[in-house]
Simulated scan of single mutants.
Amino acid sequence: MKAYLQLLRPHQWLKNLMLLFPPFLGGTLLVGQYSSGQLLWPLVAFCLGSSASYILNDICDVEQDRLHARKKHRPLAAGKVGIHRAVVLAVVFVVVAAACAWWVSAGFLMFLLLYLGISLSYSLWLKDLPLIELFCVVSGFVLRLLAGGEAYGVVISDWLFLSVFLLALFLVSGKRLSELRYEGGETPGHIRPVLTCYPKGFLEGCMLLSGSAVLVTYTMYVISHQSTIWVVPLSCFGLLAFWMRVLSGRGGDPTRALLRDPILFIVGFLWVLLVGWGIYVGS
């Protein structure tokens, strides 16, 4: 059971909280507007769908994972779970996720299927194409945001869309840079061949560009929504803390960083408190 649980990567479900951003920032999440079912079913659908995509990705990468110092311990690479059973589990998860999404709305199901389609295309072909593979991973964050807006009936503002897109690009670039520098990514034929296609300094520049841009777009979002301006310096601190974490070789996975880095966890917690206070108490 532990091996099957590892196969699902439940720690990555943290990304699905992006679905709650629209109602949280829109001021409707904590006012009793939604029933427990309305809140939970979209999260359940994306948790099951994302786990299915992780399983399919592990199936496609099983041979490469066996050569990786850390990923060789994954259930499929280590032989703890058979390929056939993993395929069956992924199909079941996709079917149940689609059923849950259909119960939410047809539009929400469209976003889920688009997410699954991009994830499958990424695992089969697109992961070997530089820059395109970056945007495939980034699209997962953006689709969660749009799906949340659809599920909870909240319109996504342009500034919020751009902020999430640029933040996702910053985080994904940091993860790739960490892999390239500290996980043997520069070795030809190793775990992620696409990393050797990026010119020297490209990923660092991508982090600098997207990190700077997200501060601008998020500042505009805060000002346009008359939110507390203190969240901008806090966000700047968080971006720099993640950048320093990546450059110091402590890992670039966003979910692991948030769960294991006390500084980033405190920044995230304070951000939720400040934004929540400004929306639900200060107003």
Rank of each mutant, 00 (worst) to 15 (best):
176 R>Y: 09
171 L>I: 07
187 T>Q: 15
201 G>Q: 06
181 R>I: 00
198 Y>F: 14
188 P>S: 12
166 L>E: 09
185 G>V: 05
192 R>W: 03
186 E>R: 14
195 L>R: 05
197 C>A: 13
170 F>K: 15
158 D>R: 07
167 L>D: 01
168 A>V: 04
172 V>S: 00
202 F>V: 08
183 E>Q: 13
160 L>R: 02
172 V>I: 15
163 S>H: 11
166 L>S: 14
180 L>W: 07
171 L>P: 00
170 F>M: 11
173 S>E: 01
184 G>K: 10
193 P>T: 12
182 Y>R: 00
167 L>V: 06
185 G>H: 09
181 R>K: 14
169 L>Q: 10
159 W>S: 07
189 G>N: 12
199 P>M: 08
180 L>H: 09
196 T>K: 15
199 P>S: 12
177 L>E: 14
194 V>F: 15
201 G>V: 06
190 H>L: 10
199 P>E: 04
188 P>K: 11
169 L>R: 04
177 L>D: 05
194 V>S: 15
161 F>Q: 01
169 L>Y: 07
193 P>G: 05
164 V>S: 07
198 Y>L: 01
198 Y>N: 10
189 G>Y: 13
165 F>D: 00
170 F>A: 13
170 F>W: 14
177 L>R: 15
188 P>N: 07
187 T>H: 12
166 L>N: 08
167 L>T: 11
202 F>D: 01
185 G>Q: 09
179 E>W: 09
177 L>F: 01
183 E>K: 13
167 L>S: 11
171 L>A: 03
190 H>I: 01
163 S>D: 09
186 E>L: 10
187 T>F: 00
184 G>T: 08
